[in-house]
Computed example of a mutant assay.
Amino acid sequence: MTHLKKHLAVFGFLLAAAVPAFAQQVIKLSTTTSTENSGLLQYLLPKFEARTNSKVNVISVGTGKALELAKNGDVDVTLVHARASEDKFVAEGHGVNRRDVMYNDFIIVGPETDPAKIKGSKDVLDAMKKITASGAKFISRGDNSGTDQMERAYWKQTGSQPQGGNYVSAGLGMGEVLTMAAELRAYTLTDRATYIAYRAKTGLQIVVEGDTRMFNPYGIIAVNPKNFPQANYKGAMQLVEWITSPEGQGLIAAFKVEGQQVFFPSYAGNSRGGK
């Protein structure tokens, strides 16, 4: 081997040894469809990835499925919106260090004709009773998402819900359900952010908003590393810390859809679940 070849071989060895130190880490995130459909993650994550030399692989599904993926160790961290389910997830030892991240609200949207005559209502339960009584169609997520869980809670409180062909359990994400509601001239319950992102293409109108029972908080939870030592707990906590940092919270506040703020930061230093 020539002197030059020896130097090149040594250089190649040193370069190969150095690569792992600069390798991009992968963080697997399960989350609800609203954070994806609204465009929030496409706005937030590149900033986090650039700062931490990370790649966040997003699985966007309903909250129930997102928590199930985290429970099974298929992801490192989860961002969802169903507080009772989140608390149960942490209490059962599946997740740690839950933090409030942001909130928006639920609304009921429907066709411009408003067959149930509920436009302008601020009472979600009364409006849903009128939807049932009117014989109008209602499209449900039907996917155990945070939205679906909230909707089912409303129907339980009203004591009734549309029957037969007037109630469609779609088993789809929020964007797809809004599209279906537009096609079938039906009502549906949606988070405001996804509705605004789809408003122009669906033509659906807001008919019910402003009820305090329609508050919609989001939380982020790291998968418990004791259950899954192979999980990227360090990366998960980097995301948890960043999204609740002044930078992350400021970016959430600055994110707009069609010029309108759709998520409101809510972290106030309160974490739950312990390490």
Rank of each mutant, 00 (worst) to 15 (best):
T158H: 08
K71T: 15
V56R: 04
V208C: 07
D211I: 05
I196R: 10
T244F: 13
T194V: 09
N72R: 12
L251P: 00
F22M: 15
E247K: 03
A91H: 12
E209M: 13
G95D: 15
K119Y: 04
A116R: 00
K156S: 12
E36A: 08
F263Q: 02
R51L: 11
L125Q: 06
Y233S: 13
A170D: 07
T78S: 12
L41E: 03
A268F: 09
W242I: 11
A170V: 15
Q238T: 10
T158M: 14
T244P: 05
V61K: 05
V240D: 02
L172I: 14
G159H: 12
Q25R: 13
G175W: 00
N53W: 10
M1V: 11
P225V: 13
V101R: 04
P162C: 10
Y154C: 03
L14N: 06
E86K: 02
V80Q: 02
S266R: 08
A254C: 05
K119L: 07
N144E: 07
I131V: 10
F11S: 04
L67M: 11
L251Y: 10
A23F: 15
A170F: 08
N104W: 08
N57F: 08
P115W: 13
L204P: 08
N72G: 05
I206L: 06
Y198L: 01
N57K: 11
K88M: 13
H94I: 12
I252T: 12
N37F: 04
G269N: 06
A222C: 10
S245H: 11
K275F: 12
R192G: 01
E86F: 09
G269T: 04
G273T: 14
T194E: 02
L67W: 03
V177Y: 00
G62N: 03
K5G: 07
A84Q: 09
A200N: 10
P246H: 03
G93K: 09
D123T: 14
Y198G: 00
F106P: 00
L45E: 01
G173C: 03
K256V: 06
D211L: 02
G235C: 14
V96R: 10
K47Y: 07
M150L: 06
L44S: 03
Q157G: 01
A21T: 14
T190Q: 04
I206Q: 15
L4D: 02
Q24C: 05
E112P: 01
G39W: 04
L67N: 01
N57E: 09
G203S: 09
Y154V: 13
I107F: 07
M128L: 07
S38V: 07
N97T: 14
I220F: 06
L67R: 01
V124M: 03
L189W: 02
E112A: 08
G273Q: 04
A9T: 12
G142E: 00
G248A: 11
S266C: 08
S60Q: 00
A84L: 08
I220K: 03
D100G: 12
T35C: 02
T31G: 09
Q238C: 12
A9M: 10
V240K: 01
G259I: 08
K129I: 08
K130M: 09
V208P: 00
N216E: 11
S271P: 00
N37Q: 13
R272D: 11
D105Q: 10
K117R: 09
